[in-house]
Design a protein around this nucleic acid. Structure first.
Lengths: 224, 224
DNA sequence: TGACCCCGTGTTGCATGCAACAAACGGGAC
DNA sequence: GTCCCGTTTGTTGCATGCAACACGGGGTCA
């Protein structure tokens, strides 16, 4: 599992981060990939040993994760990986549908030529992918596509907000991993979405993203 | 100044919070109300003395504020209150316009009877207020209105996200304090907004909120 | 006069120790 | 057997100490 090619995106710096940041990204990945499953207990001490880090960085990371609803801290009792229920999925998808759609609209309006270059590259990747549908690879690509679109929107606040929501969604996706059967759909949705952004069609991009998020929600809910 | 009736809303618990939370809310208020002006340097040590708290809670608060773009930490050099420029206002308002509008739509769709009761109370307050227009009182009321609407939307993620954005906007409002001249407008906008929510008219609520955020942005930009 | 170096001071990053509290356990009384 | 209570263990909240680094000032040398 730890040799899996799949990773929750760890931004930019390979090394340059503080220990607190590194702890954050590593623990977050453990949670999102379900290596630390929902409801499980995690103590600061255990994470210190597991990550080979001191207590301060681990604590910083956990506080951050708490604010992002990935763990729940019960003072002097323990820390638990947040549970997931179908209601969360609805509430979360509702916000994502609105905000991601808006970002897609902006992306269609604001893509620079460099942005479009990358968009074309992603489209090419998508077209190659269709046949050999490995879901983990699809997750990784989905992630890259969303992140790319956020950047194309050229609004850092939006980017940060969507990243937070995306991580929560991604964990739910992992819960459903292997039981969903809509890869082709997803690919088609992405293609239309990217085409719309590439051609600077905000309405179509917004609608395509809304459909994509809705489709994602439905597919997950079916098997959750 | 510290006796001002105006406060950045400090959620629920009067006492029950941890020291870290208390440090967070107090420092945030200092920053939003410009008692710690943009660009000024704040050291952990100084805040410890000022708040009478230890270093750990202060550090936790500062890290949180850094993630929310209220301070900037330069490792081993110092911590600065984030600067504000007109570009930030545009980028921020853009997101707020989209997300607050969406929340207003949901509020119109989902208000419970208890919610409507409070909405009516806020409308009454607004109508009384019109004459004696004290801007600080207006800020306080604006804040209560927005928070109320978020709650009416019944989506905790949305609420948290909008709170974060609102605080950033509020600081900018403080920067322009006393130089804006659109109180009547704001009141009218709020009235229409609340009426639309009260009567369960999502389209009108959404549009009213979009106008409100846009109007706010323009009014501030004029004097910034 | 100007450039350079050394070192003192201030800052944050991180480790660690102590305290407060919550739960679990065990023994005793009934 | 059951209930109650003291103790023990584990957990996080917070304070504090040390280290690494950045900057500034003063002195030196050219």
């Amino acid at each position: 599992m730890s040799t899996s090619p799949l990773r929750v995106h760890q931004p930019e710096a390979a090394e340059a981060q503080s220990l607190g940041d590194r702890a954050y990204y590593r623990i977050r990945e453990l949670i999102v990939t379900l290596e630390l499953p929902p409801g499980s207990i995690v103590s600061e001490r255990e994470l210190q040993d597991r990550l080979g880090l001191g207590r301060t960085p681990v604590r910083e990371a956990l506080q951050r994760l708490e604010r992002e609803c990935l763990v729940e801290v019960y003072p002097r009792r323990g820390i638990f990986v947040a549970n997931v229920n179908v209601l969360d999925l609805a509430v979360l998808s509702e916000v994502r549908r609105a905000v991601e759609s808006f970002a897609a609209r902006l992306a269609a309006e604001r893509s620079t030529e460099a942005d479009r270059e990358q968009t074309r590259a992603l489209i090419a990747e998508l077209e190659e992918l269709t046949a050999s549908a490995d879901e983990r690879r699809l997750i990784e690509l989905d992630q890259r596509i969303h992140r790319h679109l956020w950047r194309c929107a050229h609004n850092p606040f939006l980017e940060a907000t969507l990243d937070e929501y995306y991580v929560l969604s991604l964990r739910i996706w992992f819960l459903a991993l292997g039981r969903t059967r809509r890869l082709e759909e997803a690919v088609r949705e992405h293609l239309e979405l990217l085409e719309a952004v590439l051609h600077g069609d905000p309405d179509r991009a917004e609608a395509a993203m809304a459909r994509h998020v809705t489709g994602f929600e439905r597919a997950i809910r079916e098997v959750l």
